[in-house]
Simulated assay, not measured.
Amino acid sequence: MERSNHTVTEFILVGFTTDPTMQLVLFVVFLGVYSLTVVGNITLMVLICNDSRLHTPMYFFIGNLSFLDLWYSSVYTPKILMTCISEDKSISFAGCATQFFFSAGLAYSECHLLAAMAYDRYVAISSPLLYAQVMSRRLCICLVIYSYTGGFVSAIILTSNTFTLDFCGDNIINDFFCDVPPLVKLACGVMESYQAVLYFLVAYNVITPTMLILASYLFIIAAILRIHSSQGRRKAVSTCSSHLVSVTLYFGSFLYIYSRPKTSYSLERDKMVSTFYTVLFPMLNPMIYSLRNKDVKEALKRLFQFTHSEV
């Protein structure tokens, strides 16, 4: 029996498994990952805010990335933890739409922010003497505002188009959160206009930032090749390595999920990939930007010394 979306009051999130033992194991794993995500990102934000040596454009963007990752992980993980320990796997229609909106808005915002960070690294390497002048505080704030605005305006468009689709059959979402592929699977028929909107948003929020990042790194490579000293080249490469790792991991998984047509979706396979960029990636980012970063490690050391002296 077909039914339209106005009659759907809730969805059922299948999650990862129905085995009680595995659900308990997954609860412990995801709780550990979420705890590390919260501690790591909050610590990085506190260091950047409190240490004047980190008040530079690069760390301004990293701090905003940590804020996005903390918020991003909180959209998914608490619900995952609830579905692991509760027999109630349902999520209301309004709750699904809300989760979908914040999921899309934060994901798209992060794409634009990573592109802004690539431009920041290009300016730092190609014009080090003019870096402070070019990457002014005003420009940095404008780039961050643009990232959030572009991401959440796109999320409004995507959410309104998705949740006006007609859903038929059952209301079971074969995933752990409300996302485009599983919701499209439940739709009675996806109009070409919806596919066009989806492809436009992917092009604007994913493909375009990807192209800007690639262009920035082409110019970065050209600038590095013009550096005569090997030490200078190594220093230039090291300033980009963390960002390059983040971009590769995030955009790689993101493009895999959303740049393919409806007919090629495999929800079980996509579920595992989406776990990476929704849950694991926000935990990895603080490690990526701190483990090999001398400035962050020194700031953390100063914070520990200050805390110890206060005690």
Rank of each mutant, 00 (worst) to 15 (best):
Glu2His: 14
Arg3Glu: 05
Ser4Gly: 14
Thr7Ser: 11
Val8Trp: 01
Ile12Glu: 14
Leu13His: 03
Val14Ser: 10
Gly15Arg: 01
Phe16Ala: 11
Thr17Pro: 00
Thr18Gly: 05
Pro20Ala: 00
Thr21Ile: 11
Thr21Gly: 13
Thr21Pro: 02
Met22Asp: 13
Met22Tyr: 15
Gln23His: 05
Leu24Thr: 14
Val28Ser: 12
Leu31Thr: 06
Thr37Val: 00
Thr43Lys: 10
Ile48Pro: 02
Ile48Glu: 06
Asp51Arg: 01
Ser52Gly: 03
Arg53Ile: 01
Met58Thr: 10
Tyr59Ala: 03
Phe61Leu: 12
Phe61Met: 13
Ser66Phe: 14
Leu68Gln: 04
Leu68Ala: 04
Asp69Tyr: 08
Leu70Glu: 06
Tyr72Met: 08
Ser73Arg: 00
Thr77Glu: 04
Ile80Trp: 05
Cys84Pro: 02
Ser86Leu: 01
Glu87His: 09
Ile91Gln: 00
Gly95Ala: 07
Thr98Ile: 15
Phe101Gln: 02
Glu110Asn: 12
His112Lys: 09
Met117Phe: 10
Arg121Gln: 08
Tyr122Asp: 11
Val123Lys: 11
Ala124Glu: 13
Ser127Asp: 12
Ser127Met: 13
Pro128Asp: 06
Leu129Trp: 12
Met135Thr: 02
Arg138Leu: 10
Cys140Pro: 04
Cys140Asn: 08
Val144Trp: 11
Thr149His: 11
Gly150Phe: 15
Val153His: 02
Ser154Leu: 01
Thr159Lys: 06
Asn161Ile: 01
Thr164Tyr: 01
Leu165Lys: 01
Asp166Ile: 11
Asp166Trp: 04
Phe167Arg: 04
Phe167Val: 02
Gly169Pro: 00
Asp170Cys: 03
Ile172Met: 07
Ile173Val: 08
Asn174Lys: 07
Asp175Val: 00
Asp179Gly: 12
Lys185Gly: 02
Gly189Leu: 00
Met191Val: 07
Glu192Gln: 13
Tyr194Cys: 04
Val197Asp: 04
Leu198Val: 03
Tyr199Leu: 09
Ala203Pro: 03
Val206Glu: 09
Ile207Met: 14
Ile207Lys: 13
Thr208Lys: 07
Thr210His: 03
Ile213Phe: 00
Leu214Trp: 14
Ala215Lys: 12
Tyr217Pro: 12
Phe219Trp: 13
Phe219Thr: 06
Arg226Asn: 12
Arg226Thr: 13
Arg226Lys: 14
Ser230Arg: 09
Gln231Tyr: 09
Gly232Val: 06
Lys235Ser: 10
Ala236Glu: 11
Cys240His: 02
Leu244Thr: 13
Val245His: 05
Thr248Pro: 00
Tyr250Val: 00
Ile257Lys: 04
Thr263Pro: 03
Ser266Trp: 08
Leu267Glu: 11
Leu267Thr: 05
Glu268Met: 15
Asp270Ile: 06
Val273Tyr: 07
Ser274Cys: 10
Ser274Ile: 14
Phe276Gln: 05
Tyr277Leu: 15
Leu280Ser: 08
Phe281Ser: 00
Pro282Ala: 03
Met283Cys: 15
Leu284Tyr: 00
Leu284Ser: 02
Pro286Arg: 07
Met287Asp: 01
Ile288Asp: 04
Asn293Phe: 05
Glu298Thr: 10
Ala299Arg: 03
Leu300Lys: 10
Arg302Tyr: 15
Arg302His: 10
Leu303Met: 13
Gln305Ala: 15
Thr307Pro: 06
Glu310Asp: 11
Val311Leu: 15
